[in-house]
Every structure is written in structure tokens, then in C-alpha cells.
């Protein structure tokens, strides 16, 4: 069952334009000029119940605008959207009872209150009877291990503890869809991992649909099975994480440490990225040449150490951001778009 259905969703903002300097400012008073910016341009997608979806893109790609239209914050200019069968722009309040939002960079809690008082406030917002709110707080406190600081004012909590409280507060009403915007931003690796496993647990036990936006590849890789990439207001890729990796990871990075400098073979499928004395970095296109065959061209006696790695997902995503969107959407991904920069 689809919990989110977006069809030709569009949003255009009119942005003021002015020429530089004071003269430009004066001119803009009498002849204001605006330009239409298509923040979201006819995007269509669906999300199934219980799915964990990464909705990512570079800054200004249109992902926040899309989420805001899905949650009823913004009215679409065109197209149709249904979340849990509800049109967010028409029945925002009704929808809000069934969705949750967590914005990693933005506090939703009252900082002078304790997490417990905050949860009671959110319980009141979602019309939970006192007994039900209490039971839910106990349950969430157990899942998120909040007991140690549930009666400490939020302003005195560490960032990791605060994010756990933000997550718990957004779940007080058992939302069916949870929108997470950079939930692990600014957290240390241990806390990040902790938050990710909590999100996974939530998805598994409560079957909550997760709609995640993040610039942290770790979040995307460890949580989501499907990835939607937006750029310039359009969906440039909508694919499963496995499929994405399979098609893009046909290039390997081979780092070699040699006894002495060697002349490297000039063969199709092997690109020398860097050579500094005995230290060599190669890129092998396994679509053209197998790793095994590539290594045969290097004198094994001269080899001190070897490291073979995949191209980081971060680089793959960066490359997709740069690529022309339409040719990538649901099309075969041959990985040839990958460039050497940053490898």
C-alpha cells in the first residue's frame, strides 16, 4: 500500500532580481524585476508503507520544498499529492495527527522544560488522554533509554540526548510516517550509530515509514533500501540502494606500495590516478578488465602492499548530482559518469 503518492508535483517561487550596487537598488524600487525559480518541477514518486526512503540532493535541489508540500507546510502550484490518502494542503491538521517530523538542526522542544514536560505538552497537542500519554512516555523512555535524564531540563542535555528526546517527542502519537531531516547532524559517530539503530528498530517494530533527508552518506547507506536523488527540482534517480551500488561500483581503486618505481602498463580499463615513487593509485574499470587480470600486469615480486576498495558512495552521489538528470532516471547505470576527482 502506498502511503505517499506525488504526481507532477510542482512549486515555483518568484525571486527578486536586482542589478548590483546602489544604482541597482534604486532601479529596483521603480522597476522591480522578479524571476521564476522552479524549486520543484513536476516530480512523481510513491512510497510504500514501512519503506525507508532516502530523499537526497544538493542544497537548493528542491528536497526541503518537496517535504514541506508533503507535510502541508507549503501549497503546491501544480500536481497532486496524497499522504496516507490525505491531501496535505486541504487537510493539514488531519494529516498532522498521523505524521511526525524531526529536524536535526531545529529544536521543537521547549529547552527550559524537562523531556517529561515536553512529552506531556506534545501529548496535549496530539489530544492524548493523560493515562495514554503517561503509558506512551514510559514506552518511549524505555526504547530510547531516556530514564537517566527525563527530568533534566532540555537545555542541559548533550546534543545526542536532545536528538533522542526530539525523536521520542515526534513519536508520542505513534505516527505512521516519519519525516527525518538530517537527524544525525553534529553528532559523534557513536551517538550517530545509536540514533540509526533506534530508527531501524522503530521501522521494524512499529512499521513506521521513514522519509529521510540527509547529507550524511552513513545515514543513507545504513538505513535506507531505496534512494531518490533530486537536483534542480527534478528527480534524477529513483532506485534501490543495491541496484545503485551494483551498477556504480564497477570501478575499483587499487592502491599499491612497490619496492621500487615501476613503469605501469597503458591498458584499456586501467587509469593511473596518482604515482609518487613506489606509491601508486590506479582505477580499474572491471567492466573492461577484471581486477585479477589487471594485477597480472604488475610485477608481484615488486609489490610490498596492496589495497583494493570501492568508490565511496559519497562520490557516486556527488557524480549523480553533477550528471544530467533525465538520462539517469530509471535507466541503466553504467558507471561511466564517474570521474577521477576526489578518488
Amino acid at each position: 500500500m502506498n502511503v505517499i503518492e506525488a504526481e507532477n508535483l510542482s512549486k515555483t517561487f518568484r525571486v527578486k532580481r536586482k542589478e548590483k550596487g546602489l544604482q541597482g537598488s534604486l532601479k529596483a524600487i521603480f522597476h522591480p524585476q522578479t524571476e521564476a525559480v522552479h524549486a520543484v518541477d513536476r516530480i512523481s514518486f510513491t512510497v510504500e508503507e514501512g519503506e525507508m526512503l532516502a530523499f537526497i540532493g544538493p542544497n537548493g535541489a528542491g528536497k526541503s520544498t518537496t517535504i514541506k508540500m508533503l507535510t502541508g507546510i507549503l501549497y503546491p502550484d501544480d500536481g497532486a499529492v496524497k499522504v496516507l490518502g490525505i491531501d496535505p494542503s486541504k487537510k493539514r491538521k488531519q494529516l498532522a495527527y498521523q505524521i511526525g517530523t524531526v529536524f536535526g538542526q531545529k529544536e521543537q522542544l521547549w529547552t527550559h522544560l524537562t523531556p517529561y514536560d515536553n512529552f506531556r505538552f506534545f501529548g496535549a497537542i496530539y489530544d492524548l488522554p493523560d493515562a495514554e500519554a503517561e503509558a506512551r512516555i514510559r514506552e518511549l523512555s524505555e526504547i530510547f533509554e531516556l530514564d537517566a535524564f527525563i527530568n533534566t531540563p532540555v537545555r542541559s542535555l548533550s546534543l545526542g540526548q536532545r536528538i533522542r528526546c526530539e525523536l521520542a517527542a515526534s513519536l508520542i502519537h505513534k505516527p505512521r510516517v516519519l519525516f527525518l531531516d538530517e537527524p544525525t547532524i553534529g553528532l559523534d559517530p557513536v551517538v550517530k550509530e545509536n540514533i540509526r539503530s533506534l530508527i531501524k528498530q522503530m521501522n521494524k517494530e512499529l512499521h513506521t515509514t521513514i522519509f529521510l533527508t540527509s547529507h550524511d552518506v552513513g545515514d543513507i547507506e545504513k538505513l535506507c533500501k531505496r534512494i531518490v536523488i533530486v537536483n534542480n527540482g527534478k528527480i534524477v534517480l529513483d532506485d534501490s540502494m543495491t541496484h545503485l551500488k551494483y551498477h556504480y561500483l564497477n570501478k575499483k581503486i587499487v592502491e599499491l606500495k612497490l619496492h621500487e618505481e615501476a613503469v605501469l602498463p597503458q591498458l584499456a580499463g586501467i587509469t593511473v590516478l596518482k604515482q609518487n615513487g613506489g606509491h601508486v593509485k590506479l582505477e580499474v574499470d572491471t567492466g573492461i578488465m577484471k581486477i585479477n587480470d589487471a594485477l597480472r600486469h604488475i610485477d608481484a615480486e615488486n609489490m610490498v602492499d596492496i589495497n583494493i576498495s570501492n568508490i565511496p558512495l559519497e562520490n557516486i552521489i556527488m557524480e549523480i548530482y553533477k550528471a544530467e538528470g533525465s538520462s539517469l532516471k530509471r535507466g541503466p547505470l553504467d558507471g561511466n559518469h564517474l570521474k577521477k576527482e576526489g578518488l
Binding site: 514541506k68 507535510t71 502541508g72 507546510i73 493539514r92 491538521k93 488531519q94 498532522a96 495527527y97 505524521i99 517530523t101 531545529k106 521543537q108 497537542i125 496530539y126 489530544d127
Partner: peptide
């Protein structure tokens, strides 16, 4: 800054 109020099920 109205976003925070628009995601809640209240007036």
C-alpha cells in the same frame, strides 16, 4: 518560522 506550527495538528 511558521513551519514549526504548520506540522502540528492544531490551529
Amino acid at each position: 518560522k511558521l513551519d514549526a506550527y504548520l506540522v502540528l495538528p492544531k490551529n
